[in-house]
């Protein structure tokens, strides 16, 4: 591939080209093999420091990034900060500048506010990898979803992919929409009307409120985690009602005339958005997603470190 990675950050998939996404996926493919070795380590980021800065608790994503960084031989520091402490004391930019002053190379950040990663990236010279910002984007999750799909079905172009669940408040949905549509998949989002954000069709997706209709044509379904506690639970349908109307169950899948892949970003709410039978069944690639997450995150860390070197060289050459 002739594409060169020259970005110091990975903030989302909206601003990546098809080729840049392809480059991440290709790089991930070569890193995937590392995890199958007896000694699961390459020296690609030896001597570099990766800081996991998490303003929201997320053991899964944090651990995945930590494993990825360690398999690249980077040093890893984990900082977990209470969201409530954001209100008082040090600002995000100050925290970032402090981490930069410690000579860390990459900040992997999870934040509860949309746009936080972009803001931090603008303020710093070191790399920022967005590990989820508010409702905005969660690019590495979408990349590992796409990587898994491609591994299973051999292509993305022309696939019918459904995303089911709380689209309005989902960063996973947004990143998947950008990534999948750029690579030529047809994307349908499916949820009760109140969970579909305004003008989402203009992002190039179909909207449906009928899960059975959507499943008929889908090659794959990405089932989002439902969080009924959000907004005090006011605007949300009853959990059982949701499971009845939108839950991915064995009964629903048994009616289908073709094969289908079931994905889920985790953690699972068994019996709410997905039944246990499906989660553990033959259609499910949920654990493969977890495995592929390491390779994808290794690729991202590796590329942004390269991108940072490039932007530095560019500056000195100027």
């Amino acid at each position: 591939m002739s594409t060169v990675w020259d970005k110091k950050d990975l903030l989302g998939l909206e601003n990546l080209s098809k080729d840049e996404i392809g480059l991440i996926l290709a790089t991930a493919e070569s890193f995937k093999e590392v995890s199958s070795r007896e000694i699961k380590k390459v020296p690609a980021l030896r001597g570099r420091t990766v800081v996991n800065l998490f303003y929201e608790p997320s053991t899964r994503t944090r651990v995945s990034f930590e494993v990825a960084a360690k398999r690249l031989s980077a040093d890893v520091i984990n900082i977990a900060t209470e969201t409530s402490s954001v209100k008082k004391g040090e600002t995000l930019i100050d925290t970032g500048k402090n981490i930069q002053a410690l000579k860390a190379d990459i900040i992997v950040m999870r934040h509860n506010y949309s746009g936080a990663a972009a803001m931090l990236a603008r303020a710093l010279e070191i790399s920022v990898v967005n590990a989820g910002d508010g409702w905005h984007e969660h690019p590495t999750q979408a990349l590992l979803d796409i990587f898994t799909l491609k591994e299973k079905l051999g292509r993305i172009q022309g696939l019918n992919v459904a995303i089911v669940g709380d689209i309005a408040h989902s960063r996973v949905a947004r990143s998947n929409i950008w990534g999948l549509t750029k690579l030529g998949a047809k994307v349908t989002v499916c949820a009760p009307p109140m969970l579909i954000p305004v003008a989402i069709e203009e992002m190039g997706v179909n909207v449906s409120h009928d899960i059975d209709d959507v499943l008929k044509d889908a090659d794959a379904v990405n089932v989002l985690r439902m969080q009924f506690e959000r907004d005090g639970g006011q605007a949300f349908p009853e959990q059982l009602e949701y499971f009845k109307n939108f839950g991915i169950t064995k009964e629903r899948l048994s009616k289908l005339k073709k094969d289908i892949i079931i994905m889920h970003p985790g953690p699972l709410n068994r019996g709410i958005e997905i039944s246990s039978e499906v989660a553990d069944g033959k259609h499910s690639v949920i654990l493969e997603q977890v495995t592929n997450g390491i390779a994808v995150r290794m690729a991202v860390l590796f590329l942004v470190a390269q991108g940072q070197d490039k932007s530095k060289k560019y500056e000195t050459a100027d």
Binding site: D133, W135, R171, P197, V198, M203
Partner: peptide
């Protein structure tokens, strides 16, 4: 403003 931009940015419209 509520619209495509608020949806893209993941901000309340």
């Amino acid at each position: 403003n509520q619209g495509l931009i608020s949806t893209r940015l993941g901000l309340r419209g």
